[in-house]
Design a protein around this nucleic acid. Structure first.
Lengths: 210, 210
DNA sequence: TGAAAGACGAGACGTTCCGGTTGGTAATTT
DNA sequence: AAATTACCAACCGGAACGTCTCGTCTTTCA
C-alpha cells in the first residue's frame, strides 16, 4: 500500500488517453450514486468504463482519489456551465448569503452531486490524508468565496471590525453541512435563512453605517 | 447482506454471555484506536476478544453496529463515572456553554473517545440506517441537554422568545463538529469560546432582563 | 437426575474484492 | 519500418467476508 515500487515507471502523461480518463471519472460518479461508496469497487469502475484495471491503478492510488478527481471535474463543469463562480454582491449581505446558501441546500439535496460529496466527506473523516486533499481542493475554495464576501461587507462597515471572518464563515456553513451529514433535521431554505439571520445578528454592527 | 434468512433463529437473549459481550465491545474500541476504522475487521475483533466470529455475527449485523454499541457503552460508563449528566446552570449562559463546549473540544481531541466517534459519524454519513441510529442514540441525547439549558435561559428572559431553540443548538454544536470532521482548522478552547459568543449575540435579548 | 436446547470457542469453507502482474494489441514516435 | 508505450483483458495470491460445522459448556425442563 504505502511502499512505492522503486522501479515505478513514471507514466508519460502526454500519452494519456483522455477518452479513458473521462470514462473512468464518469463511471465512478455513476457507480457511487448507484451502489454507494462502500460497495464501490475499482473493478466495477474499470468494467463500466470499458477500461483495464491497470489503467486506473496507473494514474490513481486509490478509489477515493478517483472519486475526488471526479468530483473536482464535476464542480469544474458546474462552474464552466450555468453555475456562479463569484459570490453575488448586491450590497445586501443577508440576501446574498441566503441566495448562495439556498443554492447549496438544493445542491446537497441533489444526489447526483451529493452522493460523491457525501462519500468523500465520510472517507476523508477517517483517512486524514484524503481528508486533507478533499478539504483543500474542494472545500476551501468555497469557503474562500464566503470569506471574500464577508470581507467586502466588513470593509463597507456592515460587520463588526473585530470579527474573525474565518470563524464567521464556518458558523454559516457548518450548520448546513452538519444537518446534511448527520441528518439531524430537514435541510430546507427556511433553515438556511434562519442560520443566516442568526449568524449575522452575532457579527453585524449595531447600526447601519453612514 | 440485506436479505434476511426467513429461517433466522432469533437467538435467546437471556442466555447471552455478558462476558463475551463486554470482551467484544472492549476489543472493538481498542482496535479502532489502533488501526482505524477502515482496517478494523470482524475477524480481528473476534481474535482479540477470544471469541468465535459467529458470536459476533449472531448479535450484530455489521462491524459498524458493534462499534455503535461500544460507543454507547463508553458514554454510558462516562455518565456513571465522573462525567456530568445534567448541564451546568449557574445562571450565566455563556459561561455554562463555554464550560461544556470546552469539555467537548477536549473529548474530541482525545483519540480514545474520538476514534470510534469519528468512525461512526463517517460510516453513518454513507449508511442511512446506521446514521439514523447513531444520530438518535448518541447525538440527540447530547443535543437535548443543550436545548434544555437554552430553554431555561429563554424562560428567564436571556434569550429572544422568538428563537428556534433547535436551530440555536445546532449553530452552537455544528461549528465544532465541522472542524473536527473536516479538519478545516484547529479545534481549540478559543474557537469554542468565539462560537459561543457569536452565536449568543445572535439570539440574546438586547438588554439584561429585570 | 438426566436429557435436550442453545450459546459458546475454534476454525474450515467458498466467495468477493483487492492490488499487482503479464500478455497481446493499437497508436504514436523516431 | 522499428521501437516505444499506453491500452484492454485476463490471471494470480492474499485478505476479509459471512456461513457452516464441530465439540464443549451452561442452563432449562421433564
Amino acid at each position: 500500500m504505502t511502499s512505492k515500487n522503486p522501479d515505478a515507471k513514471a507514466p508519460d502523461a502526454s500519452r494519456r488517453s483522455e477518452r479513458s480518463r473521462r470514462a473512468i471519472l464518469d463511471a465512478a460518479l455513476a457507480l457511487v450514486g448507484e451502489v454507494g461508496y462502500n460497495r464501490l469497487t475499482v473493478e466495477a469502475i474499470a468494467a463500466r468504463a470499458g477500461v483495464g484495471k491497470q489503467t486506473i491503478y496507473r494514474w490513481w492510488p486509490s478509489k477515493a482519489a478517483v472519486l475526488l478527481d471526479a468530483s473536482l471535474a464535476l464542480s469544474g463543469d458546474a462552474a464552466d456551465g450555468g453555475g456562479w463562480t463569484g459570490f453575488p454582491d448586491t450590497g445586501d449581505l443577508a440576501a446574498d448569503l441566503k441566495t448562495v446558501m439556498r443554492a447549496t441546500v438544493d445542491e446537497l439535496s441533489d444526489d447526483t452531486y451529493a452522493a460523491p460529496a457525501r462519500a468523500l466527506a465520510a472517507a476523508g473523516a477517517t483517512d486524514p490524508e484524503l481528508g486533507a486533499r478533499f478539504t483543500e481542493q474542494l472545500l476551501e475554495p468555497q469557503l474562500a468565496l464566503y470569506e471574500a464576501r464577508l470581507r467586502s461587507a466588513l470593509e463597507s462597515g456592515h460587520i463588526d471590525p473585530g470579527t474573525d471572518l474565518r470563524v464567521a464563515v464556518e458558523m454559516l456553513v457548518a450548520p448546513l453541512t452538519y444537518r446534511w451529514l448527520l441528518r439531524t433535521g430537514p435541510l430546507t431554505h427556511a433553515f438556511a435563512d434562519e442560520v443566516v439571520d442568526r449568524a449575522l445578528a452575532g457579527i453585524a454592527t449595531a447600526r447601519e453605517p453612514d
